[in-house]
Design a protein around this nucleic acid. Structure first.
Length: 605
RNA sequence: GGGGACGUAGCUCAAUUGGUAGAGUCCCGGACUGUCUAUCCGGUGGUUGCGGGUUCGAUCCCCGUCGUCCUCGCCA
């Protein structure tokens, strides 16, 4: 037997009604967004998740309940109400900006469901109160259309990912949130164990090891939309907890993973955001990406590639160039088309400063005119040398040339960042344009200056490209791994690899990384043991959900696509987490804090 | 751990060379029958984040501190 509905309950949402409902008596529930009071005539915009409907109260309406008009006059922003009335075509002309703009609901009765205090900021789509306030009252901010849109599209997106992977034989497996700390990688969030005093769980930085174990278990195709935790300093695109589409496949090689992921991403971007990603995603090696774009996450929405002029520069009269080459460095340049006029000395200084933030000593520049090379390096580039440089850079009159001369790593980094900055200035990074690519074959290892040792470049489970050459001691830098990154518009959105599935090779990598036998045993013993019982060849990837959604919606950071985000100090301004706990709780865990503010009483002050 | 920006009315911002704070909006009261961020009239509202210093006098200068954001390092 069907439940009887209360009389205040809605018959339609605030986005439902249009001219086809004309004449119907309806009930709407929602929040009062705006309120236009003409005395005997009152307009109220009623909002819910689905839209906004104009509600009109008129004293002479047939059947209007006594006092309804006065009540509506008295109510204000964010009061929650139920409105009963008849749908009719608007008398004052329609509002084309709303789906419901042709009609209005002529009020017969008003029920107050809950009155709201005056909100600390106005809940309007285009009102931007400062972020601190918005996060403190996150529930109010979330009522705004741009935030609701993010939540809705994010949900559609993850649903599309799930559907697609399910249809392709993947099974969703939950892995533990309470797991083990590992010394490598990011700092862990720790959770003390009550039943094992002095011991700690760690929250997972990713389900990496467990998904590989799933492959050993014969799961064959695993996925999970998994929460990951890393206790590192935050950025606009980094939160202490974030979400990944994590997947792993058995008996595969790069092509299998890349093709599957490409299809999944294309499908989910279409379903979630109605965005058509251009396919196929180009593939390039790490080496090529760095050489051409100065970055392992190249933005392919525009060209302006780095041009190698090292050979030419070696013979240059310009000491900065020749000297850099002599010391084993390189010289590269970018050609900014038609920008000579746009860059004053002051703006070039700003670019130089930008380059210096990324380790460059400076930035050499030239403006090209009909007469040849002008600017800081002009006197070294008169006549043939200048003509040659112009030809190498494929420059034309009106172009701006920018050069970096240093060791290769520095030149690539700095010039790569300058390339992005210049493109930003010129509006070449259109947020509505999407260009994806794959970057392949990362180095296995990189030298860590601080710790004076080699460390893994990607993750320690990535297989080497050359299975037959695992003599890592010999020229460590030359070894390439079967790791790949998924990149869109200069953002790294995913990272994965074909894994090492033989325990002896995995041990060899751990050995080379200087992880002791005891550490290997303690942290990865169960994994190495598992492989002994028959681990299939496998590989996978993890895709950053927050970043994908932010990019698709053209948001600057990921905070706006997370319902309840944290600040750069990892604080939740709404709940005030993290907070002090009762002394009894600490005692039970056998924990003493050396910090102040270690009891709730002190924290309040 | 380092660098930078910001902090003034509930909100968004302004305030000359250092001379004791003002606008819009919100809110409150009034008028108003076709608005759509209604309009018009009137009104309330301030420990200038906090603490200290310089000064006859500090929103303004200096030091410290707290918070938010951006960023390098860190982090995949």
């Amino acid at each position: 037997m069907a439940h009887e509905r209360a009389p205040w309950q809605r018959t339609h949402t605030c986005g439902d009604l249009n001219i086809s409902n004309e004449g119907e008596v309806v009930v709407l529930n929602g929040w009062i967004e705006n309120h236009r009071d003409h005395g005997q005539l009152v307009f109220v915009d009623l909002r819910d998740r689905y839209g906004v409907t104009q509600v009109t109260a008129h004293s002479e309406t047939e059947g209007i309940v006594d006092g309804a008009l006065e009540l509506l006059q008295r109510l204000g922003a964010e009061d929650v109400v139920s409105i009963r009335g008849r749908v009719r075509r608007r008398e004052g002309g329609s509002n084309d900006e709303r789906a419901t703009g042709e009609i209005e609901v002529l009020v017969q009765a008003v029920t107050v469901l809950n009155e709201a205090e005056t909100p600390p900021f106005e809940v309007l789509d285009d009102v931007e109160a400062n972020e601190e306030l918005r996060m403190r009252y996150r529930y109010l901010d979330l009522r705004r259309r741009p935030l609701q849109e993010a939540l809705i599209k994010r949900s559609r997106f993850t649903t599309a990912v799930r559907t697609y992977l399910q249809d392709n034989g993947f099974i969703d497996i939950e892995t533990p949130i309470l797991t083990n700390s590992t010394p490598e990688g990011a700092r862990d969030y720790l959770v003390p164990s009550r039943v094992h005093p002095g011991r700690f769980y760690a929250l997972p930085q990713s389900p990496q090891v467990l998904k590989q174990i799933c492959m050993i278990s014969g799961v064959d195709r695993y996925y999970q939309i998994a929460r990951c935790f890393r206790d590192e300093d935050l950025r606009a695109d980094r939160q202490p907890e974030f979400t990944q589409v994590d997947l792993e496949m058995s008996f595969v090689e790069e092509n299998d993973v890349l093709d599957l992921v490409e299809r999944t991403v294309v499908h989910a971007f279409k379903q979630g955001f109605d965005i058509d990603l251009p396919t196929p995603f180009p593939r390039m090696s790490f080496e090529e990406a760095v050489a051409r774009y100065g970055s392992d996450k190249p933005d392919l929405r525009f060209g302006m590639e780095l041009v190698d002029v090292t050979q030419h520069a070696a013979a240059s009269a310009f000491k900065v160039f020749a000297g850099a080459v002599e010391r084993g460095g390189i010289v590269k340049g970018i050609c900014v088309k038609g920008a000579a006029g746009d860059y004053s000395r002051k703006k070039i200084d700003a670019l130089t400063k930008h380059a210096q933030e990324y380790g460059a000593k400076g930035l050499a520049w030239a403006k090209i005119s009909e007469k040849g090379v002008e600017g800081s390096i002009a006197k070294f580039y008169e006549g043939d040398a200048g003509a040659e440089l112009i030809q190498l850079m494929a420059a034309e009159p009106g172009d701006l040339l920018l050069f970096g001369a240093d060791e290769a790593k520095v030149v690539h980094r700095a010039l790569g960042e300058v390339r992005l900055k210049v493109a930003d200035d010129a509006g070449l990074r259109d947020p509505q344009t999407f260009r994806c690519c794959w970057v392949l074959n990362f180095p296995m290892f990189e030298w860590n200056e601080d710790h004076q040792r080699w460390q893994y470049a990607h993750n320690p489970f990535s297989a080497p490209v050359d299975w037959d050459n695992t003599d890592f001691e010999k020229d460590p830098e030359s070894h390439r791994s079967r790791a790949y990154d998924f990149v869109m518009n200069g953002w790294e959105l995913g990272s994965g690899s074909i894994r090492i599935h033989r325990p002896e090779l995995q041990k060899k990598v751990f050995d080379f990384l200087g992880i002791s036998q005891e550490e290997q045993e303690r942290n990865f013993g169960y994994m190495l043991e598992a492989y002994k019982y028959g681990g299939p060849p496998h590989g996978g990837i993890a895709l950053g959900v927050d970043r994908m959604v932010a990019l698709a919606l053209g948001r600057q950071g990921i905070r706006d696509v997370i319902a309840f985000p944290k600040t750069t100090m990892a604080v939740d301004l709404m709940s005030q987490a993290p907070s002090a706990v009762a002394p009894e709780q600490l005692a039970e865990l056998q924990i003493e804090s050396k910090a102040r503010q270690d009891t709730p009483e002190e924290q309040v002050e």
